[in-house]
Design a protein around this nucleic acid. Structure first.
Lengths: 164, 164
DNA sequence: GTGCTTGCAAACAGTTTGCAGATAG
DNA sequence: CTATCTGCAAACTGTTTGCAAGCAC
């Protein structure tokens, strides 16, 4: 992964190339996104940026994230139950590992996806353009106090539709 | 895949085992779910069932789907952009192939997922309980009139969070 | 100065919930 | 008879949009 400052500069350059203006709020947001290790939500970014610019609105955060997503610099992980998460460092499809208890999201080291994609393309006649692979489970920290779990059902996951 | 009538009987039995009552609306819904080839949305099921019971409400459809999901008889595919889809025939995690133009969803023949899950478990220390794998692309039908596409960005997909 | 951006508030969509009346068992 | 179920409508949540004022360039 590139270092945050380099990534930040890249994001600035990409936006400028798209005739976007660099407002202070936007610059601060880009810094946050470039520096975010995990997969922050819009609300999370909003709360961070309010520390610097108290009048910033959530809508601005969403608009900037949308902008970055449109130019392919941010990956949006949509969740129908929960708020979406954003990855500004690896804006291309890659597997995620999501703790169902603490909601932490990490990038597991998984290979083989490309071969799966090719397999699907070959067998179905679809032109496969993208994919999404999420694993759900308990992170090491959450496995300890997890004995009382055994709630209802396995209750499977639920991704979001890709936009056209 | 089991035939619809067998699947229907199974769903009835499972619900009765959970002290659920078999109202006419519910029976009709179970038939629809058992017979659905694709991955219907709640709205789609609602529109179908209204043909038989015009006063049925969307809330009833959602409540029944929730019930079935809780006892592990329906897989919910949540989408943050679009309405959720339900699979009442294969209620366990399995890959989906989603056309980004016509929204058709099919089950591609993919193996290897289990080995991926094991790989993730081994390498991360997470207890992997479930997963979700979606491929996005253009189905054969939609590939033809698809030249004028080339819209904005690849615009990646966006799954839903698994409920706890 | 021009027009993109902000921030507020209202709109939005799909889903969920509360509750009174209906009904399966 | 009684606990569940239905159907309506209102609530909810995260996200999006419209628009007037503000600001980058």
């Amino acid at each position: 992964m590139t270092d945050p400052e380099t990534r930040f500069q890249h994001l600035v350059a990409r936006l400028k190339a798209h005739d976007c203006r660099m407002t202070p709020q936007r610059v601060a947001l880009l810094r946050l996104i470039a520096a975010s290790e995990g997969h922050p939500s819009a609300m999370h970014l909003y709360e961070q940026i309010k520390a610097q610019f108290p009048t910033t609105s959530l809508a601005t955060v969403y608009k900037t994230l949308d902008l970055l997503r449109e130019i392919g610099e941010v990956l949006e992980l949509g969740f129908s139950n929960d708020d979406n998460r954003y990855d500004g460092n690896k804006p291309y499809p890659h597997p995620h590992l999501i703790c169902i208890r603490c909601r932490k999201i990490i990038d597991p080291p998984v290979t083989l996806i490309e071969s799966l994609t090719q397999e699907v393309t070959r067998l179905t006649g679809y032109q496969v353009l993208s994919h999404r692979l999420d694993f759900y489970g308990l992170c090491p920290d959450c496995q300890q106090g997890a004995q009382e779990r055994e709630t209802t059902a396995p209750d499977i996951q639920t991704p979001t539709r890709q936009k056209e």
